[in-house]
Write a protein that binds this DNA or RNA. Structure first.
Lengths: 267, 267
DNA sequence: CGGGACGTTGACGGTCGTCAAAATTAGTGG
DNA sequence: CCACTAATTTTGACGACCGTCAACGTCCCG
């Protein structure tokens, strides 16, 4: 009954070895620079393969056609847009969401610096979801045909592309587990733990975070109504597990959050 | 508010152009043959790229190292197994499921002939879910390093691998929509419509199907308890939408099922 | 300073989960 | 082939959890 490596629900979104590695904190980017180069990018460890030769690094720089700024609330791409490129997030925070015919919609993920968006478009050369910036953002535009060309020449890149897509598949498995079998408290606990984990991997605090999304967007992602999200936050506050001031969240008791998800492991 | 191409919830699992194409019905395979060759396989349109040259087709035959039979109830691979290969299903029916630390488990998909399993293992060279045969099955074993080698030489294959992975990501988006925002009846209706659609693409009936999984497995996939699945089936029967005899299901009114998912589109 | 978006809280009801028992089927071994 | 046991399915009663509706409070931005 017990599997050797049970799935870790706190690792839901973007449980990846790259994000788990501690990287140098993000420093403000010189907005004046036009030079687009992965080789000098402090996020390289997050979106690019490791162990490239110097020559390969130079070639990789060609991957990024240009950068693009996206204002808060604006789409990077929309459902129905022709697919041409993958996007590596340099700064900012995105949500991706799909809409059903009858107007229901579902947030399928939240993406932060160093993560890749646009994978949904590859199958049919059309994007099937919206990617919306939740704060002013900048992305590296990587035309997909260049990616395919280069990955024929650089084996590590091919590997990397495969891993990124597989990682997304595994992440979504975790979300399915959450949506299929967890109660509201468990979902929110898993969500918070996952967010701080990813932020921590980017040099931010382990215990403090600023939510970039509304209660409604959290709810949509977690399969809950916004009122339930709000109530669950309040419950965590009552129990002394977190402090919440609007979108500022401070985790006071990480173990308590983990216990919510995995009761019998601790008790 | 309305997107140009809303997501179609009936297309949830494996909504892919290959499965949607009508292919020749599956005929009994000569069990005595040892020859392993995609070029002569009647499922080729489902798992391999189209438009290959004769020479490329020959090379593609090398992809499949061997075939493997899996008895009903037996695992093709398990959580924690080292990842080496992707598997193309020749015959039979699989489920994939993950388990959380505390014993909860979640069916993440059901796979049938012509579909590919094992993509979860690519990220960390370890499988993160179990793939269990729901009936006696046979798969083509395709070592992943061979796939990567060959896709450097055959551009259409590289494309194809990317599309297969992207398709899986999009499929899972659909499942997230289902799990996050649909009620029990809607989930079951979407599930049935998806199954018949995929079976129809393989030459089977549009209205009749045999479920290869238990109510509990359906429930796990749909985020419902088995009692709810059973009750919902009963409700559909009362309403004259389907006939159910154990695992034999006959859909009497496809439009009614679609209406359940998309009320206002029809009424 | 004012309006609109966002968040909180309460009351209530519906959907679905839980527990239990019985019916039907499938699988196993003699 | 049949008997027996385990597995699966159905159905009912009840309750918990979360959704719905509503009102109010807060924050942010112009």
């Amino acid at each position: 009954m017990l599997n050797p490596r049970p799935h870790d629900p706190t690792n839901l979104p973007a449980a990846n070895e790259a994000a788990a590695r501690h990287v140098t904190p993000i420093v403000p980017v010189n907005r004046g620079t036009i030079k687009v180069a992965c080789s000098g990018c402090n996020l390289r460890e997050l979106c690019m393969p490791l162990g490239l030769s110097h020559e390969e690094l130079d070639r990789i720089d060609d991957l990024v056609a240009n950068r693009r700024k996206v204002k808060r609330g604006a789409p990077l791409f929309r459902n129905g847009d022709r697919f041409t490129s993958l996007y590596a997030i340099r700064t900012g925070f995105f949500k991706t969401c799909i809409a059903s015919e009858d107007g229901r919609d579902q947030v399928t993920g939240f993406q932060m610096a160093g993560e890749i968006v646009g994978l949904d478009g590859i199958v049919n050369d059309v994007h099937t979801c919206d990617a919306i910036a939740l704060e002013d953002a900048e992305v590296c535009v990587m035309p997909f045909d260049r990616i395919e060309d280069l990955s024929n020449q650089i084996h590590a890149l091919q590997r990397h592309v495969h891993k990124i897509m597989s990682r997304e598949i595994v992440r979504e498995h975790g979300v399915m587990l959450l949506l299929g079998s967890m109660r509201a408290e468990e979902r929110l606990a898993a969500f918070l733990l996952n967010l701080v984990q990813r932020l921590h991997a980017r040099g931010f605090s382990q215990s403090e975070l600023v939510l970039r999304m509304t209660r409604e967007e959290i709810g949509s992602y977690l399969g809950l109504k916004l009122e339930t999200v709000s109530r669950t936050f309040s419950k965590f506050v009552e129990e002394g597990i977190v402090e919440v001031k609007q979108r500022h969240v401070r985790i006071l008791n990480t173990d308590a959050l983990k216990e919510i998800i995995n009761p019998q492991v601790y008790s």
